[in-house]
């Protein structure tokens, strides 16, 4: 998702700096906890710290090609390069979509409809 800004290693401390996707995202605490738990499992020697940084601001173009693939597997269209472009359908890949709602079930997603396979789908917002 391109959320990792940097990892600082210092003596016995490892600090992971994450960039929040959306300031009001309710999953931030959970992401922090899961990051800490996972790293603690791998690295039992050092102290793990996770903090959120706003500089630089997270932008949707930070999502990697691998991230794009994983989003599609989840049924979410990855963000386009610009707001004016409509995403292609993550299910059938056709470019025959229309926007149903600039907003969706979460802060980061909008709702679209594919006229090709006749299914609604969600897409990551361009930020």
């Amino acid at each position: 998702m391109g959320m990792v800004h940097r990892v600082l290693v210092n003596d016995h401390d490892v600090t992971v700096q994450l960039m929040p996707t959306f300031v009001g995202c309710p999953a931030l605490e959970l992401i922090k906890k899961q990051t800490m738990d996972r790293l603690q499992q791998i690295d039992k020697k050092n102290r793990i710290h996770v903090e959120f940084v706003f500089d630089p601001p997270w932008t949707s173009d930070r999502i990697t090609p691998d991230g794009h693939q994983k989003l599609k597997q989840f049924g979410i269209a990855p963000p386009q390069k610009s707001l004016q472009q409509l995403p292609s359908c993550p299910y059938c890949n056709q470019e025959d979509g229309e926007i149903l709602n600039l907003f969706g079930p979460t802060a980061c997603r909008a709702i679209y409809y594919c006229r090709g396979c006749k299914q609604p789908f969600e897409g990551m917002k361009v930020v």
Binding site: P26, L100, F103, P105, T106, R109, I111, Y113, P120
Partner: peptide, 18 residues
């Protein structure tokens, strides 16, 4: 809790479309 309500409404919209 706001996120939860938003989620439910969003799901409602998706399902209504289906």
């Amino acid at each position: 809790i706001m996120a939860k309500v938003q989620d439910e409404m969003g799901h409602g919209q998706l399902l209504l479309r289906v």
